[in-house]
Amino acid sequence: MTDSSPPILRLMVDSGNTRVKWGLHDGNGWIERGSAAQADGALLGRQWREMEAPDHILICHVAGVAAKNGLVEALSHWEIEPQWISAATYQCGVRNYYADPAQLGSDRWAALVAAWDLQRQGCLVVDAGTALTVDALSDTGEFLGGIIIPGMDMMRAALAAHLVPLTAAELSGGAFRDYPDSTADAVASGGVHALAGAVERMAGLLAATLGHVPDCLLCGGAAQQLQPRLELNATVVENLVLEGLLLIAREGGQDSRATARIR
Protein backbone atom coordinates (compact mmCIF):
# COMPACT_ATOMS: atom_id res chain seq x y z
CA MET A 1 0.00 0.00 0.00
CA THR A 2 1.39 3.43 -0.93
CA ASP A 3 1.23 6.45 1.33
CA SER A 4 -0.96 9.04 -0.39
CA SER A 5 -0.51 11.73 2.27
CA PRO A 6 1.03 15.00 1.05
CA PRO A 7 4.68 15.69 1.84
CA ILE A 8 5.62 17.47 5.04
CA LEU A 9 6.95 20.90 4.14
CA ARG A 10 9.65 22.47 6.27
CA LEU A 11 10.69 26.12 5.95
CA MET A 12 14.29 26.63 7.11
CA VAL A 13 15.37 30.25 7.71
CA ASP A 14 18.93 31.53 8.17
CA SER A 15 18.58 35.07 9.52
CA GLY A 16 22.04 36.63 9.44
CA ASN A 17 23.35 40.11 10.11
CA THR A 18 23.08 41.20 6.47
CA ARG A 19 20.72 38.81 4.68
CA VAL A 20 17.93 36.33 5.34
CA LYS A 21 18.23 33.08 3.38
CA TRP A 22 15.48 30.50 3.33
CA GLY A 23 14.54 27.20 1.78
CA LEU A 24 11.39 25.09 1.62
CA HIS A 25 12.05 21.33 1.82
CA ASP A 26 9.53 18.59 1.02
CA GLY A 27 11.44 15.65 2.50
CA ASN A 28 13.19 14.83 -0.76
CA GLY A 29 14.81 18.11 -1.70
CA TRP A 30 14.63 21.89 -1.69
CA ILE A 31 11.64 22.90 -3.76
CA GLU A 32 11.99 26.66 -3.26
CA ARG A 33 14.77 28.93 -2.08
CA GLY A 34 15.17 32.66 -1.70
CA SER A 35 16.87 35.49 0.12
CA ALA A 36 16.43 39.15 0.96
CA ALA A 37 18.32 41.90 2.69
CA GLN A 38 17.79 41.78 6.44
CA ALA A 39 16.11 45.20 6.32
CA ASP A 40 13.69 44.20 3.52
CA GLY A 41 10.96 42.43 5.45
CA ALA A 42 8.45 43.47 2.80
CA LEU A 43 10.29 41.44 0.15
CA LEU A 44 10.41 38.42 2.44
CA GLY A 45 6.72 38.75 3.07
CA ARG A 46 6.00 38.79 -0.66
CA GLN A 47 8.23 35.78 -1.31
CA TRP A 48 6.54 33.74 1.40
CA ARG A 49 2.98 34.76 0.53
CA GLU A 50 3.50 33.34 -2.96
CA MET A 51 4.45 29.82 -1.80
CA GLU A 52 2.60 26.95 -0.19
CA ALA A 53 2.25 27.13 3.57
CA PRO A 54 4.86 25.05 5.42
CA ASP A 55 4.08 22.56 8.18
CA HIS A 56 7.15 23.56 10.22
CA ILE A 57 9.33 26.65 10.44
CA LEU A 58 12.82 26.46 11.96
CA ILE A 59 14.93 29.61 12.30
CA CYS A 60 18.45 30.47 13.33
CA HIS A 61 18.69 34.19 14.03
CA VAL A 62 21.69 36.32 15.01
CA ALA A 63 20.66 39.83 13.97
CA GLY A 64 19.03 41.31 17.07
CA VAL A 65 15.58 42.09 18.39
CA ALA A 66 14.40 44.54 15.70
CA ALA A 67 15.27 42.12 12.91
CA LYS A 68 13.56 39.29 14.78
CA ASN A 69 10.40 41.36 15.06
CA GLY A 70 10.55 41.96 11.31
CA LEU A 71 10.78 38.22 10.70
CA VAL A 72 7.82 37.56 12.94
CA GLU A 73 5.82 40.12 10.95
CA ALA A 74 6.84 38.57 7.62
CA LEU A 75 5.75 35.14 8.86
CA SER A 76 2.52 36.33 10.45
CA HIS A 77 0.20 35.42 7.56
CA TRP A 78 0.77 31.75 8.45
CA GLU A 79 -0.68 30.54 11.72
CA ILE A 80 2.38 28.45 12.51
CA GLU A 81 4.56 29.08 15.52
CA PRO A 82 8.20 29.05 14.37
CA GLN A 83 10.94 27.34 16.35
CA TRP A 84 13.96 29.54 17.08
CA ILE A 85 16.99 27.36 17.62
CA SER A 86 20.02 27.92 19.83
CA ALA A 87 23.22 25.95 20.09
CA ALA A 88 23.00 22.80 22.21
CA THR A 89 25.55 20.89 24.23
CA TYR A 90 25.09 17.88 21.94
CA GLN A 91 23.03 17.49 18.77
CA CYS A 92 23.14 15.47 15.55
CA GLY A 93 26.45 13.87 16.50
CA VAL A 94 28.22 17.14 17.34
CA ARG A 95 29.41 17.98 20.86
CA ASN A 96 29.74 21.66 21.72
CA TYR A 97 32.83 22.55 23.77
CA TYR A 98 32.10 26.26 24.00
CA ALA A 99 32.55 27.48 27.60
CA ASP A 100 28.88 28.49 27.51
CA PRO A 101 27.37 26.29 24.76
CA ALA A 102 24.27 28.46 24.36
CA GLN A 103 26.44 31.52 23.60
CA LEU A 104 27.59 30.02 20.31
CA GLY A 105 25.76 31.62 17.39
CA SER A 106 22.92 29.44 16.14
CA ASP A 107 24.10 29.89 12.54
CA ARG A 108 27.56 28.60 13.43
CA TRP A 109 25.99 25.66 15.24
CA ALA A 110 23.78 24.72 12.29
CA ALA A 111 26.78 24.95 9.93
CA LEU A 112 28.80 22.67 12.22
CA VAL A 113 25.98 20.11 12.28
CA ALA A 114 25.80 20.12 8.46
CA ALA A 115 29.58 19.91 8.12
CA TRP A 116 29.77 16.88 10.41
CA ASP A 117 27.03 15.14 8.44
CA LEU A 118 28.97 15.78 5.21
CA GLN A 119 32.49 15.01 6.42
CA ARG A 120 32.33 12.62 9.40
CA GLN A 121 35.90 13.65 10.20
CA GLY A 122 37.76 16.68 11.44
CA CYS A 123 37.41 19.79 9.30
CA LEU A 124 37.26 23.57 9.31
CA VAL A 125 33.88 25.23 8.90
CA VAL A 126 34.23 28.74 7.49
CA ASP A 127 31.42 31.27 7.08
CA ALA A 128 32.67 34.25 5.08
CA GLY A 129 29.80 36.64 5.70
CA THR A 130 29.48 39.96 7.53
CA ALA A 131 32.08 38.50 9.87
CA LEU A 132 34.42 35.63 9.09
CA THR A 133 34.03 32.67 11.44
CA VAL A 134 36.45 29.74 11.36
CA ASP A 135 35.33 26.79 13.47
CA ALA A 136 37.18 23.56 14.19
CA LEU A 137 35.61 20.09 14.29
CA SER A 138 37.50 17.06 15.58
CA ASP A 139 37.56 13.59 14.05
CA THR A 140 34.95 12.52 16.61
CA GLY A 141 32.51 15.38 16.05
CA GLU A 142 33.66 17.72 18.80
CA PHE A 143 33.42 21.45 18.19
CA LEU A 144 36.76 22.52 19.65
CA GLY A 145 36.30 26.27 19.23
CA GLY A 146 36.67 28.94 16.61
CA ILE A 147 37.57 32.52 15.76
CA ILE A 148 35.66 35.58 14.57
CA ILE A 149 37.18 38.46 12.60
CA PRO A 150 35.65 41.25 10.49
CA GLY A 151 34.49 40.26 7.03
CA MET A 152 35.33 42.05 3.78
CA ASP A 153 32.63 44.71 4.01
CA MET A 154 33.46 45.50 7.63
CA MET A 155 37.14 45.90 6.75
CA ARG A 156 36.30 48.26 3.89
CA ALA A 157 33.96 50.29 6.09
CA ALA A 158 36.54 50.59 8.87
CA LEU A 159 39.25 51.76 6.47
CA ALA A 160 36.91 54.21 4.76
CA ALA A 161 35.86 55.63 8.13
CA HIS A 162 39.30 55.98 9.68
CA LEU A 163 42.16 55.85 7.19
CA VAL A 164 41.52 55.76 3.46
CA PRO A 165 40.36 58.94 1.61
CA LEU A 166 37.72 56.96 -0.30
CA THR A 167 34.17 55.97 0.60
CA ALA A 168 33.19 52.36 1.30
CA ALA A 169 31.23 52.41 -1.98
CA GLU A 170 34.34 53.50 -3.90
CA LEU A 171 36.41 50.83 -2.18
CA SER A 172 33.87 48.13 -3.02
CA GLY A 173 34.98 48.29 -6.65
CA GLY A 174 38.42 46.99 -5.81
CA ALA A 175 39.66 43.60 -7.03
CA PHE A 176 42.27 41.12 -5.82
CA ARG A 177 45.69 41.68 -7.40
CA ASP A 178 49.03 40.09 -6.64
CA TYR A 179 50.55 43.58 -6.68
CA PRO A 180 47.74 46.13 -6.30
CA ASP A 181 48.34 49.50 -7.97
CA SER A 182 45.28 51.37 -6.72
CA THR A 183 43.89 52.06 -3.26
CA ALA A 184 40.65 50.16 -3.94
CA ASP A 185 42.58 47.11 -5.16
CA ALA A 186 45.00 47.37 -2.24
CA VAL A 187 42.11 47.26 0.23
CA ALA A 188 40.38 44.37 -1.57
CA SER A 189 43.61 42.36 -1.82
CA GLY A 190 44.55 43.05 1.78
CA GLY A 191 41.13 41.88 2.94
CA VAL A 192 41.38 38.62 1.03
CA HIS A 193 44.88 38.00 2.37
CA ALA A 194 43.66 38.67 5.92
CA LEU A 195 40.73 36.27 5.60
CA ALA A 196 42.79 33.56 3.89
CA GLY A 197 45.57 33.94 6.42
CA ALA A 198 43.17 33.49 9.33
CA VAL A 199 41.72 30.33 7.78
CA GLU A 200 45.14 28.88 7.03
CA ARG A 201 46.42 29.63 10.54
CA MET A 202 43.45 27.77 11.99
CA ALA A 203 44.05 24.92 9.53
CA GLY A 204 47.61 24.61 10.80
CA LEU A 205 46.46 24.49 14.41
CA LEU A 206 43.80 21.90 13.67
CA ALA A 207 46.20 19.79 11.61
CA ALA A 208 48.55 19.60 14.60
CA THR A 209 45.62 18.49 16.79
CA LEU A 210 44.22 15.92 14.35
CA GLY A 211 47.44 14.58 12.91
CA HIS A 212 46.22 15.27 9.37
CA VAL A 213 45.44 18.32 7.25
CA PRO A 214 41.73 19.10 7.54
CA ASP A 215 39.40 19.84 4.66
CA CYS A 216 37.69 23.21 4.70
CA LEU A 217 33.98 23.81 4.04
CA LEU A 218 33.13 27.36 2.98
CA CYS A 219 29.84 29.22 2.98
CA GLY A 220 28.77 32.86 3.04
CA GLY A 221 28.79 35.72 0.57
CA ALA A 222 32.58 35.92 0.17
CA ALA A 223 33.13 32.15 -0.07
CA GLN A 224 33.64 32.10 -3.83
CA GLN A 225 36.12 34.97 -3.60
CA LEU A 226 38.06 33.33 -0.79
CA GLN A 227 38.23 29.75 -2.07
CA PRO A 228 40.86 30.18 -4.83
CA ARG A 229 43.16 32.05 -2.43
CA LEU A 230 43.38 29.18 0.08
CA GLU A 231 46.18 26.66 -0.01
CA LEU A 232 43.81 24.04 1.36
CA ASN A 233 41.30 21.54 0.07
CA ALA A 234 38.42 24.00 0.30
CA THR A 235 34.89 23.34 -0.95
CA VAL A 236 32.10 25.89 -1.19
CA VAL A 237 28.84 24.44 0.15
CA GLU A 238 25.83 26.59 -0.66
CA ASN A 239 23.26 26.97 2.11
CA LEU A 240 25.30 25.03 4.67
CA VAL A 241 23.31 26.61 7.50
CA LEU A 242 19.97 25.61 5.95
CA GLU A 243 21.22 22.03 5.56
CA GLY A 244 22.13 22.00 9.24
CA LEU A 245 18.74 23.35 10.23
CA LEU A 246 17.08 20.56 8.27
CA LEU A 247 19.14 17.93 10.13
CA ILE A 248 18.23 19.54 13.46
CA ALA A 249 14.54 19.53 12.51
CA ARG A 250 14.67 15.86 11.59
CA GLU A 251 16.45 14.85 14.78
CA GLY A 252 13.90 16.83 16.75
CA GLY A 253 11.19 14.44 15.59
CA GLN A 254 9.44 16.98 13.42
CA ASP A 255 8.07 14.37 11.03
CA SER A 256 4.47 14.84 12.11
CA ARG A 257 2.42 17.85 11.14
CA ALA A 258 2.55 20.95 13.27
CA THR A 259 -0.15 21.46 15.85
CA ALA A 260 1.19 24.52 17.68
CA ARG A 261 -0.42 27.66 16.32
CA ILE A 262 -0.04 31.37 17.04
CA ARG A 263 -3.75 32.04 16.71
Rank of each mutant, 00 (worst) to 15 (best):
Y98D: 09
R177F: 08
V65C: 00
D14R: 04
A208R: 13
E81C: 13
A128Q: 07
P165V: 08
A67W: 02
Q119C: 13
G253I: 07
A114Q: 08
F176N: 01
R263P: 13
A102E: 14
H61Q: 15
D3Y: 10
P82A: 11
C60G: 14
G211Y: 06
R120K: 15
R201N: 02
E243Y: 00
V164R: 00
R250Q: 14
A53G: 13
Q225W: 03
A53L: 10
G146Q: 01
L71H: 00
H61W: 04
C216K: 01
S5L: 15
A157M: 03
E52G: 09
A39G: 05
A53K: 08
D107W: 06
A63Q: 04
L58S: 06
G204V: 06
A39E: 12
S256M: 11
R201L: 03
G122C: 07
L166T: 01
A111Y: 08
Q227P: 05
G41Q: 09
S172Q: 12
L232Y: 04
A74R: 01
L242K: 06
I80V: 14
P101A: 12
G93P: 12
M152K: 02
H25Q: 00
E251R: 11
T18G: 07
V134W: 01
C60E: 09
I80W: 10
H212G: 00
R95G: 08
A99E: 13
I85W: 12
I248W: 02
G41M: 12
T183Q: 09
A67H: 14
A169R: 12
G244T: 04
T259R: 14
I59D: 05
D14A: 11
N96C: 08
G23A: 12
C92K: 02
I8R: 10
L247K: 14
D117A: 15
L240C: 09
L118R: 15
E200Q: 14
A74K: 05
N233T: 12
G244W: 00
P54Q: 10
A128C: 12
A115P: 05
T259H: 13
P214C: 06
R95A: 13
E81R: 13
G129Y: 01
Q121F: 01
L58A: 11
G45C: 10
G173K: 09
T259I: 13
A258M: 04
V237H: 01
A184Y: 07
V187E: 08
A160I: 06
R250I: 04
D181C: 13
R10K: 14
G105A: 08
D255S: 11
G253Q: 02
L11K: 05
M154R: 12
S35N: 10
L44C: 11
M12H: 10
S106N: 08
W116Q: 07
M152V: 08
A37V: 06
I57M: 13
C219Y: 00
R49K: 15
R46C: 07
A115W: 04
G151P: 01
Q254G: 10
A66E: 14
L159C: 07
R95P: 03
L71T: 04
D14N: 10
W109R: 09
Q225L: 15
G70F: 00
A66Q: 14
A157R: 14
R229Y: 09
A87K: 04
A53H: 05
L166I: 01
D139I: 07
L75H: 00
A186S: 15
L58F: 08
H61L: 02
M12L: 15
